[in-house]
Computed example of a mutant assay.
Amino acid sequence: MTEHFAHVVRGSGPGLLLAHGAGGGIEANYGPILDDLARTHTVVGPDYPGSGATPRSDRPLDLDSLADSLVATAVSAGVDRFTILGYSLGTAVAVRAATRHPERVTGLVLTAGFAHPTNQMRLAVDVWRALLDQENQELLAKYLTFAATGGRFLNSLSPADLDAAVGGLVVPPGTPDQVDLVAAVDTRAELARIAVPALVIGTRQDVLVPAEVQRALADGIPGAEYVEIESGHLMQIEARDDWLAHIQKFLSRI
């Protein structure tokens, strides 16, 4: 069933639709660059069920419905055609949206993405899901800080900054549903059907989604450009300027 998600609309210009990661949200995943993107584009940022102001779903999430609802939310906001900027789980949502709604998608920017979880990823996701069930906020925060942060950045933190990072974790109520969807993702068969310009931005120090998984995503998309930034999974914090620069350069070309 197609729904309309709670969302933000910012800026003016060509359409740019945001697809966030599991356990995240538009503000958490894109807040550091929203103002910059809105200077040149009309940015639509929907929150998945259970994130932001979108109510949690009463049924398991599936990629088709999520992609359809993301597109429907943009169209309802008056943005009929758009590039999709996807992050982590959002890269799979973006790919599915591009293959289900090719008349609306003009380009893809995929960061820290994957087409299918490897065994390494599945183990990481299984631990994440189990910790959510245990409702041990401190242990969950320590695990996610370890897994989502690049070693160089993490080891540069002072003890006080590390404590702040662990203590600042926010877990949206829909996180378990979104994490379950990560384990079910498989867009490998449709990558070859992507017919729009695509940029895949790899995060070189990523533990959750290893760089070779991200390169495989790029390899599967005809003509996709691949670049890497020196970061773990949280490039919004670790390499914000480099991430933004690659996005803006690509958007200016298309």
Rank of each mutant, 00 (worst) to 15 (best):
H233F: 04
P102M: 08
H7N: 02
V95Y: 01
V125P: 00
R129E: 00
L154F: 03
R96N: 13
D180E: 15
G113W: 05
F82S: 14
R59Y: 04
S57C: 07
S231A: 12
T175Y: 01
T83R: 09
G25A: 10
E190M: 10
A19F: 03
K249R: 15
G90A: 07
L169I: 13
R129V: 00
D58G: 13
V109H: 06
R104I: 10
T2Q: 12
P46C: 09
Q248Y: 01
I247M: 03
L63G: 10
G21I: 05
N136C: 06
D177A: 14
R122T: 01
L181I: 05
A218G: 12
S65F: 00
H233Y: 00
R122N: 00
A28N: 05
S156A: 13
A218R: 14
A38Q: 13
R10T: 11
V8L: 15
V182R: 09
D161H: 14
D186V: 10
M121F: 03
G90V: 07
P159R: 15
S252P: 12
L181C: 02
G113E: 07
F146L: 15
G223T: 08
G168R: 08
H20W: 01
I201R: 12
G150N: 07
L110V: 13
G13F: 06
P222Q: 09
A164I: 04
M1F: 08
R253T: 15
L66H: 02
Q214D: 07
G50H: 06
A22N: 00
A28R: 14
L108H: 12
L66P: 06
R81M: 04
H41P: 05
L89R: 12
V166S: 07
R152M: 04
R56E: 13
D219R: 15
R39P: 01
V227K: 14
D180C: 09
T203F: 06
P197S: 06
M121D: 00
V109R: 12
A224N: 04
L208W: 07
L217E: 12
Q248C: 08
N136A: 11
L199G: 05
F82W: 04
V125C: 01
A164C: 04
H101I: 08
A19M: 11
A239F: 03
A224K: 12
G25V: 08
G31P: 07
T175H: 00
Q137V: 15
T54Y: 02
T73V: 05
E27W: 11
I33M: 10
L17Y: 02
P117V: 02
R81A: 07
T175I: 01
D177L: 13
D206Q: 13
I237K: 12
A189W: 00
I229A: 05
A218L: 06
V43P: 03
E190H: 09
F114G: 03
R100G: 04
A38C: 09
A6V: 05
L17I: 11
G223F: 07
A184I: 01
H20S: 05
S57Q: 10
L131H: 02
G78F: 07
A92G: 02
S65N: 14
L217A: 10
D58F: 00
P117Q: 02
S158I: 14
R56D: 10
E212R: 13
T203C: 14
G168D: 10
A67I: 09
R240F: 04
R240H: 06
L162V: 08
E3H: 14
T54W: 08
R56W: 05
G24W: 08
L244I: 12
V125Q: 01
S57H: 13
T175S: 02
